[in-house]
Amino acid sequence: MAMAAFRREGRRLLLSPVSYNSSFAARSAILSYSELGPMGARSISTQAVRNRMKSVKNIQKITKAMKMVAASKLRSVQVRTENSRGFWQPFTALLGDNPSVDVKKNVIVTITSDKGLCGGINSTSVRVSKALYKLTSGPEKETKYVVLGEKGKVQLARDSKNSIEMNITELQKNPLNYTQVSVLADDILKNVEYDALRIIYNKYQSVVSFLPTVSTILSPETVEKESEAGGKLGILDSYEIEGGDTKAEVLQNLAEFQFSCVLFNASLENACSEMGARMSAMDSSSRNAGEMLDRLTLTYNRTRQASITTELIEIISGASALTGFSQSARATDNIQYRRYACMIKLQS
């Protein structure tokens, strides 16, 4: 009679692992709250894994949201960037781009972003700036940095802070517009002495590709010198100048206007690249978070399953001590079967 009752009881226990699961979960929660007992003594705490899963899930949510924001910002910036390319093209047609010009006073304008989490675009422009610094520096030469953006400032301040002339931040608080950039260009022109300004930025090609680019703007004196020396700038003499302005005046106005236009385009291109880079960076990080979450879930379920099995074995061996061997053997088989079934389900 007693044996029959036990047998029934054992079967019921086996058939309802859910109730065990919940009671186990409650116990493990209590255990992990108080952190009592030696590690892994009886039941393995799943709290740590659960916390980890929660945090990974939150990070994934954030990165997904950032990707959406970057994508929507990118669309508006991209249109304006493509429109702004018309600003510098006439200048390049007229004055050409002379990256190889060799002058005494160089000013490197490095354009970076204020915010991070956008892949390697900031370090790319800093790296190119440093390379250009090495190229242009030499005896009796002077090279200075003008840094746009917080990230470039931080990176350049590390090892070449003595060459930084000025830095500009918070440029992108409002959407970039020409007035803003031209006021900034004016500020830069008033504060630095230059023979050649070299603007370094990431030119936007597509969402995943950005070209580090150097645009060179020559001072009016340098333009005159170069045009006298011939070459591409030699054709400047064939232009007829209207009005009472002299050639020097026209060149000075042109150089200033060219700088503001090129700077406008460059900062837009860089903003666009920043958004694109952030979008792809956030995309890959949410994918990574998803992969991590999958792995953690697998670990969590395995641990849970293992501890359920342990508990069941304990109970059944307790029961079999009372009822005899043959039954317990059958019960253990049953557990094994259940466990395999669960594992197959988990892995599929």
């Binding site: 802070k161 000025m166 931040t169 900034l184």
Partner: peptide, 23 residues
Amino acid sequence: AREKVHFTVSKWADGKPEKPSVR
């Protein structure tokens, strides 16, 4: 609305940024 200007400039002297001024 297209002529809003906002940025912060700080000049550097002797390897140190001076106090930034907001435009």
